[in-house]
Simulated assay, not measured.
Amino acid sequence: MSQDTVTASRKNTNRVVAFVCLAFFGGMIGMAYAAVPLYKMFCQATGYGGTTRRATQQYANRVLDRDIVVRFDANIAGVPWDFQPVDRSMTMKIGETVQAHYQATNKFDRPVTGRATFNVQPELAGPYFNKVECFCFTDTTLKPGETLDMPVVFYVDPDIVNVPELKDVKTITLSYTMFPVEKSKPVASSVPVQGSSKTISNTEANLGG
């Protein structure tokens, strides 16, 4: 085998290895970006980790003659809001569709956008806590001093009584945590100064230079 043939073979091998590495690297990046929404969908579908399920119907197929207490909890994580449930707890029938309310007030001197995540305790109750309407995972912007009513509609699946670990559960806690959402700033563009080759940014133009 000639030296030129060996060299060409090595170059081809290197190209293949480089291509495989790039493909693997690109795939890992894609998986990283997809991990969060996929995990969110998985949790909502299964109730894993105390995540409540998204109801496919507005009402349960039956209502049991058995009460359960749902407690409401609210937390903030870096957002300058007063975020609280209107009522701290509610007694309802298992299978009954009910509505609860949270309130958020922006205490800051400028508009602030927040987004809520949620879970339930005990964690095993997650798959049986079905939300029909919810403000979670939705970006909400409040003006300075603005107060917003935030309803959540839900029911507890009657099948919860068939789970040995949950058949005697008397209380479920629904907990929300509100996080700040940073809005991307517009990229400054340049506009020509009339009668000159000089350019200024749009921000300077709006401020009169």
Rank of each mutant, 00 (worst) to 15 (best):
D168T: 07
G145K: 04
V169H: 04
C136Q: 09
K131L: 14
L148N: 06
P127Q: 05
E165R: 15
F118K: 06
T138M: 11
D149A: 08
D168G: 05
D149K: 10
P158V: 03
V169K: 02
K170Y: 13
C134A: 15
A116M: 10
F137G: 01
P127A: 12
M150E: 02
N119W: 09
N119P: 13
Y155Q: 08
F154H: 06
P151G: 09
C136K: 03
V132Q: 05
N130M: 10
P151S: 05
P151E: 11
E165A: 14
P122L: 11
F118T: 07
K131M: 15
K170V: 11
K131G: 02
P144Y: 12
V153H: 00
R115S: 12
D168K: 09
P151A: 03
N130H: 15
L142H: 01
D139R: 10
P144D: 07
K170N: 15
T117N: 13
D149H: 03
A116I: 06
Q121K: 13
K167Y: 08
P122K: 15
V152E: 00
V120T: 02
L124Y: 03
V132E: 03
A125I: 00
T140H: 01
D159M: 03
K167Q: 14
A125W: 00
A125P: 00
P127I: 03
E123R: 12
V132P: 02
T140W: 05
V161P: 00
Q121A: 14
K131Q: 11
K131P: 07
P164L: 05
F154L: 11
P127E: 09
C134Y: 11
C136G: 10
V169W: 00
V156N: 00
M150F: 15
V132M: 12
P122I: 13
L166Y: 01
V163I: 12
K143P: 05
M150L: 15
T147I: 05
